[in-house]
Design a protein around this nucleic acid. Structure first.
Lengths: 198, 198, 198, 198
DNA sequence: GATGAATGAGACTTCATTCAT
DNA sequence: TATGAATGAAGTCTCATTCAT
């Protein structure tokens, strides 16, 4: 046999993982039964417990997977350091684009890790901090208005990202790069013609 | 007897409704057991079914309650028609403030109707359309940049609102009015010093 | 007030009894809820227990009522003793007619006491014995064939009665007297033209 | 392993089916708890739902089983066509014998399908029609008295059958063939010595 | 590596019945 | 005489999980 030992098992495990991701994403954690996961994976229920501790465990694994990969995407998105406002905005836009690419390529995982999981709150919190740091630096260097609390802005941005991902990106309405561009533009300039102030 | 007829029953029903709201908000629909609702309301399980069809039914009722009240808040927030850009922004800010007041006064209901319920998607969609219409009018009158699709802006704004409500408003970090002001300001002017463009 | 003391209570009790009879007859014992009995009687649940020990108790009462009345009907149906075959057949026919009259006038009670109640078996057993005695006497006097076990004939007749009551009498398809006549005729002569024998 | 695949499951299912039949027959539908069925079958409650949709479903299955088998028995009881009165009576007697054989061999199923089930009314109705057709043909050919409505006779006969089955056959008091003979004889000739008429 | 068969634990719901007024 | 309000007890069903092969 050409296949190495253990290959079949790994495949079964993967099938289960994918099936679980799909079911969780579509039906949520509680509405997803182990029985429907294994049905989708064309395996039996005991097979499930051959590869995973429990239903909770697969969910955890998927969440972690999402988190790790997203972190990697973000970390690897760092552009060569260009210290200018445009640099920061470019960086933001670039990172957002890569994130969106990742989300778009992994819709089920995204719904799980960015929406369903309780830990998604922490992840979004991390994201907020990451954005905040970026913007704060620029703010201290005087390129951004100083009357905004950058933490607040970051929170707003993350909220925007979350919604846009699920209403525009995943349904395929707008391309990742376009979305990133639109969002950054909006947050930088606002919609007013002039520097209006309420 | 000082109390009017039917008062005790109405009170029990209310206690159950509040208990349910609290439990659902904190633990989610599935993790909330009828047994814990009645425990919180200091009643027995059958009492629950004296006032509600089923666990699903209370949830529905709470969602509807949230929706109806929120709609009322929004509808009654209309200021005397002032046809100016400032008018629109004032209106937006005013409505947001009232909404936030409502959310802040009803945190459990808000978490249920704005987050947990599947129907919350529709509600947010309605909100998006409402915002979009407001902004579109102004856009046509030339007060807002024409290069933004206002639907996109509205989506962004609603995403922002959702997150801000749960991370800033409900935990009591920022006052309703302040939040409304900050958000509108941000969306109108952006954070950039000048009309920067990525 | 013109009404004597206790009249209202007796009326309520009667209403409940009738309601119970109707519900039991239509839906059977288990499918009948105390709640539907009181609903039909336009009273509250505690009122039910004011007049009856339990759900079982009303059922019992109805069964007994049926039994007592039916027994009375049968006992009072005795014709002036005429010792002849025709006499016996007349007696049988007369009694059946009166029974059928009673059944027809009390359809709910009949369904309960003649069909639903476990005790209905005993009642039918009594009926069998009563018929058997009648026929046996005649048999000994040589008027009936001696090769039939009259107990068997009586069982057959009671079976016939039971079915005919529910399929012909209660639905009002055939009049009581006609039914009695038909049945007795059938059992006396059979359907064959001649004295055929299988 | 000597046993073929799936044998154990089929056995368990059968055990449950038998247990259910017994319990239903003895205690009726409502008094029979799933817990007592599985106790009798020496299985746990969930096992029951492994093989049946619900308590109602097993009952239905048993009723259908009874109906199908009884229909088969009746259909296969057809003798080679002998067009004579004796032929019809022989046929009737033969079919009754086979039916009684079937009932005697399946007492629980019989009680369920012929007595407890609401659908048993339809089955008995079918039986009435079958008997009626048989007798009517003979009546038209002049072998039977024309002053009986054969539908009425058929109703009487079916009533007789039902009672005799439960009071004589199932308790084992009289053999199937004897019962069939007795009943047919009775219905053909009646008990009178002569062609008496009330 | 995989599965047919089975189960422990627990959730929702119903209903006859009673308490307090 | 009557009822609004409440509950104890019990039953059906589901589901994650495991045993035995």
């Amino acid at each position: 046999m050409a296949r190495e030992k253990g290959a079949k098992g790994r495949e079964s495990r993967l099938r289960l993982l994918h099936a679980a991701a799909k079911q969780f994403a579509i039906h949520g954690f509680h509405e997803t039964k182990v029985s429907s996961i294994v049905a989708e994976a064309k395996l039996s229920q005991p097979a499930f417990y051959l590869y995973f501790e429990s239903k909770d465990a697969v969910f955890e694994e998927l969440v972690k997977l999402f988190h790790v990969r997203l972190t990697t995407v973000i970390n690897e998105s760092r552009l060569p350091e260009i210290n200018s406002t445009d640099g920061v905005l470019n960086q933001l836009c670039h990172t957002l684009t890569l994130m969106f690419d990742y989300f778009y390529a992994n819709p089920y995982l995204t719904r799980i890790g960015f929406h369903l999981a309780p830990q998604s709150q922490n992840m979004k919190q991390e994201l907020v901090q990451w954005v905040e740091q970026m913007l704060s630096g620029e703010q201290r260097s005087g390129q951004f208005k100083s009357d905004f609390r950058m933490n607040m802005v970051a929170e707003c941005l993350v909220g925007t990202i979350e919604r846009i991902v699920f209403t525009q990106l995943l349904p395929g309405k707008v391309a990742p790069e376009q979305l990133a561009l639109d969002i950054v533009n909006l947050y930088v300039s606002g919609i007013g013609m002039k520097q209006s102030k309420v």
